[in-house]
Design a protein around this nucleic acid. Structure first.
Length: 564
RNA sequence: UGUCCCAUGGUGUAACGGCAGCACUAGUGGUUUUGGUCCACUCAGUCUAGGUUCGAAUCCUGGUGGGACAACCA
């Protein structure tokens, strides 16, 4: 009787958009944009922003541009723009137009002339130190520059000469004339242009003056007809300035009514990692990780190399939601999202990370048989494969205990277990070396249990993964753990930095044995190593030199119980 | 001695003046040729003090707590 459809709950941005649609605020379709600065690699926090703007565009039948905010030539590089484009496409999004703020330098310059002519901007000869000291503090008003009231003609002349390269870096700036006593520091005559005789990755040496973020961003949105300009919370105090520039440049009532509006949401934070571009850059440059795409990095490239899928990241972005309050997401949610996706799509395979040799005493010498194994129990369409079985095999060292506790379902002296897709085996003898370390197990198998079922119906509690010693392939396996050992890597003792919280065991490398099927894989292919976790082939893996990265372990309720 | 933003289970996020819901985490049980998956269940929340109202997580006021703002960075 209660057939109410589940109420769709909107986040505050969707609610605003639907209100704009209802009130017909915009005469055209909705337009979004994702505006990275090409000065580093994108991370999972950017992925949230990308999913937001591109996702909204898709949901409301609008478009989303990719715009590189390239107004600071000394920090920006082509390598970064290529990586960013790559990441966005990999995530599964397609931008409408590929834009660059540098495409608008000419227009921005013309608008600067307009503002000076209107008496809304001026050229300032003050030094950086003077400007900083005259700006005041958040609690004290600033004071006006001596150049503030210089004649319009003089500012115009100076601006032209700045552009022509007549002045050295730092000798002059263009400032908006707003209010040095404003409680908002950003309104105290903010700088619009600075002189930088630097090579720009797109405009080369055409310009030696470059606009500041605040002077460029709103106008770029306006030029692209952006209707909803979404950014993170730290730009909230910039919004009055965003509006001020457009208010003073655009003289058209209708355009102003429909004009782009900035809306801020809380950025993503994840525990056990850092999300600051500066810190990520430091990790790369100082060699604490192997590069921007090191699988321990929270970068999109790192997550990809770790074995995360685009769908898992999109789903994660959806689950964390959009709001304005500060948040720290638990990595377990991210891990849940990959497991959820990989469980559906990952090829199952067997591999042994910490091998213990077993000789099956009653199995014929030299015999090898091919046993049928299911590729993915969650998806019948993925079919089956054949796995070679032989007299000597390897199992996981942790799957045998000489003196097992109660509820231990695995192998122990006299116990019978199932080898997955193979046979029931019983341990008859434990072989040790002089130091008492177990070196080998002697077992017998029940020939009637081929495939893993017993015709007499007897049950075994344990099922182990295994690999044929004769046919297995060697593989280098990278076992990754969290990069930092502290939930909050930013908190550290006096005189120390976040680097002191690096987890010394974030990477453990082992030589493992895997079934021959792995040789058919391509870099980035996903696998589930049964009973162990999800893995993928590294970008540098080849059939003859397998390199496997662990994405995440399987949930392990036995490990939890064993801890107690 | 400022301005602005924010406050719901352990973590996130809904509820738009009318029964505080969902996901993750944790725990219990069931199914299982992965101690996986799946299924069922359990623990657990409106920062505080007033006010408005028949009725407040929601509106108002004051506290408290957290965050942002003083690059010629974005």
């Amino acid at each position: 009787m209660n057939q109410e459809e589940p109420v769709k709950s909107l986040n505050f941005i969707e609610a605003m958009i639907e209100e704009d649609i209802r009130s017909k605020k915009h005469s055209g379709s909705l337009q979004f944009r994702f505006p990275p600065e090409p000065n580093g690699y994108l991370h999972i926090g950017h992925a949230k922003a990308i999913c937001l703007s591109f996702g909204l565009a898709a949901k409301y039948k609008g478009l989303c541009n990719l715009r590189f905010d390239d107004t600071n030539p000394i920090k920006e590089e082509v390598e970064y723009v290529e990586a960013i484009k790559d990441n966005i496409q990999w995530l599964g999004f397609t931008w409408d137009k590929e834009c660059y703020t540098s495409d608008y330098f000419e227009q921005l310059y013309d608008w600067a002339i307009l503002l000076i002519k209107k008496g809304k901007a001026y050229v300032d000869d003050s030094s950086a130190d003077e400007i900083a000291s005259w700006r005041g503090t958040p609690t004290q008003p600033g004071q006006e520059s001596p150049c503030r009231n210089r004649p319009v003609e003089e500012s115009l002349d100076l601006l032209g000469r700045m552009k022509n390269g007549e002045f050295p870096d730092g000798s002059k700036v263009v400032r908006a004339k707003i209010d040095m006593a404003s409680p908002n520091m950003h309104m105290r005559d903010p700088i619009m242009y600075r002189i930088k005789h630097a090579h720009h990755h797109r405009t080369a040496n055409e310009w030696c003056i470059y606009p500041m973020y605040d002077y460029a961003h709103g106008q770029s949105d306006y030029i692209e007809n952006v209707t909803h300009s979404l950014c993170t919370l730290e730009f909230e105090v910039h919004r009055p300035l965003y509006d001020w520039f457009l208010d003073n440049i655009i003289d058209d009532e209708k355009v102003n009514r429909e004009r782009t509006r900035q809306t801020e949401f809380a950025r993503l934070n994840l525990n056990y990692t850092v999300m600051s571009k500066r810190m990520l850059l430091q990790l790369v440059e100082e060699g604490h990780v192997e590069g921007w795409d090191d699988p321990r990095m929270p970068t999109i490239s790192g997550l990809r190399r770790r074995g995360y899928t685009p769908a898992s990241i999109r789903n994660f972005a959806d689950k964390v939601g959009i709001a304005k309050r500060e948040n720290v997401i638990d990595v377990s949610l991210l891990e849940h999202c990959v497991r959820e996706d990989l469980n559906k799509i990952a090829q199952r395979v067997m591999g042994v990370l910490d091998p213990l040799k077993i000789t099956i005493a009653n199995y014929p010498d030299g015999q090898v048989e091919e046993l049928e194994a299911i590729n993915n129990p969650e998806d019948e369409r993925m079919g089956t494969r054949r796995v070679p079985f032989s007299k000597t095999i390897y199992i996981e060292r942790a799957d045998f205990m000489e003196n097992p506790p109660k509820k231990y379902f695995r192998l122990s002296p006299g116990a019978e277990v199932r080898l997955r897709y193979a046979y029931y085996i019983t341990c008859t003898e434990v072989v040790k070396d002089a130091s008492g370390t177990i070196t080998e197990l002697i077992c017998t198998y029940d020939t009637a249990t081929r495939g893993g079922d017993s015709p007499d119906g007897r049950k075994v509690k344990g099922t182990l993964h295994w690999v044929s010693a004769e046919k297995a392939l060697k593989a280098r396996v990278n076992l990754y753990d969290r990069l930092f050992s502290l939930e909050d890597p930013y908190s550290c003792a006096e005189g120390e930095t976040f680097l002191s919280n690096l987890n010394p065991n974030s990477l453990e490398q082992v030589e493992a044995f895997v079934e021959p099927f792995l040789a058919e894989g391509q870099p980035f292919d996903h696998y589930q190593f049964e009973r162990l976790g999800y893995f993928c082939l590294d970008k540098n893996s080849t059939p003859g030199n397998l390199v496997v990265n662990r994405t995440v372990t399987l949930r392990d309720s036995w490990a939890k119980q064993a801890e107690k």
